Computed example of a mutant assay.
Amino acid sequence: MKIAELIAWFEAWANPAWQESWDNCGWQIEPGVLEESAQVLVCLTPTLAVMEEAIALQNVGTPVNLIFAHHPLIFKPVKSLQTGDAITEITRLSFHHQIGIYTAHTNFDQVADGTADVLAQVLELKHATPIVETQAGLGYGRVGVLEPTLTLQELLTKIYTQLHPPDLIFSPEANRKQTIERLAVLGGSGASFISDVVKTGAQAYLTSDCKFHQFQESRDRGLILIDAGHYATERPACAQLVAKLQNLSLEWVQLSQKDEDFRQFYGKY
C-alpha cells in the first residue's frame, strides 16, 4: 500500500475536517513520499528522539518513510527556523531522510477505536457512549458501565495494572471501599469536560493533566477524579492503531520505542 493510499484510508475513518479549530491535524511534513510503499513508525508524540529512531531503523535496513503521530509537531505558526530548535532539526532530518510526519489528533480522539474508545476497551467498559457527542455515535470521551462493579481500590489497581502510569492522583477524601458502577474516561487533557461528565451520572472520571482546583471542583460535585497522566491514557490507542495498520498488510509497521512521558516522579527513586 502506498502512503497516499494509507492516508486516504485513514481519513475516511478519522476525517481531519472533524478536528477542533485550534488543532493542526494531517500532514506536518510531506517530503515527497506519497507514492512510496508505506513503512510506518507509530508514536504518540513526534519528537527528535522518534525521528532518530526512524533514521536508525533505516540504517539497519528498514526503510521507514512515515512517522504517524497522535500529537501535532506544529501547533502554532512557525515564525523562524533556526539551527538547534527541535522543529528545525526534525524538519531537516525529515527531508534529508525522506521521512514524512502525519498527525491525527482531535479527529482521532472522537472515532471508534480512537483514543477514548480504546481507553474504554482497556478498562472493559460496557455500553460505552461518548461523554460529549459530536456526531452520530462519535464524540469526546466515553462513559460506560463496569461489569462486574469494582470498589474504588479495585478500579485504581486495574488502571495502574493496565496503563502502567508512573503514578496515580485521585480525589481527596474518596472512600476506596465504595462501589464504582459507572465510569467515564478521556485520554489526554480532559479536565475541561468535568461538567459534562457530571451530567452522565458517572461516579468516577479517568483522564489526565488535572489541576489543583479541578480536583476541588470534582470533589465538590461528587465526582471522583483520577489522573493517570497524558502518556499512559493515550499510548494504548497508538498500540491499537499499529494492530489496525498490520491488518492492512503494510510492508512494515511498528510502535515507537522512543516515545517519552516527559515526567518523572522523584519519590519513586
Rank of each mutant, 00 (worst) to 15 (best):
V132K: 05
D117S: 06
G114N: 10
V132E: 08
L34F: 04
L41G: 12
V64E: 04
A112W: 07
T45L: 02
K158R: 15
P72Q: 12
Y269L: 13
R142V: 02
S94E: 06
Q110S: 07
Y140V: 00
F262W: 11
I67W: 02
V42R: 05
Y269P: 05
E181M: 07
L168G: 13
Q178T: 14
I194E: 00
V60E: 14
L245A: 04
A116H: 05
K258S: 14
E173C: 10
I3S: 12
E30S: 01
A228C: 14
L125A: 01
K79L: 11
L93S: 10
K199S: 11
I180E: 11
A4H: 09
T47G: 11
R176F: 06
A104N: 11
I159G: 04
A116G: 15
G144C: 02
F75W: 13
Q153C: 10
A17M: 10
E35C: 03
L48P: 04
F212K: 03
P172D: 12
L150F: 13
A116E: 00
Q216I: 09
N59V: 01
P77E: 12
L168F: 07
V198T: 13
V143M: 03
A120Q: 05
L119F: 07
T151L: 07
F75G: 10
K268V: 11
K76E: 08
F265P: 01
E36S: 13
S256Y: 04
T134V: 03
P31N: 13
K158H: 08
F262P: 08
L138P: 03
L41S: 13
L41V: 05
G26I: 06
P172Q: 13
Q110T: 05
D167N: 13
T134Y: 00
A4Q: 13
A49K: 15
Q82P: 02
G187C: 02
P31S: 08
F212M: 08
E234C: 00
Y205H: 08
T45G: 03
T157W: 09
H127P: 00
G188Y: 01
S80K: 15
K76Y: 06
V185I: 00
E89T: 14
S218I: 00
V197C: 01
F95R: 03
L155Y: 07
T151A: 09
Q135F: 05
P16A: 14
T115L: 12
G187V: 06
S192A: 15
E173T: 10
A136K: 15
F170A: 09
T161V: 08
I74C: 08
L248D: 09
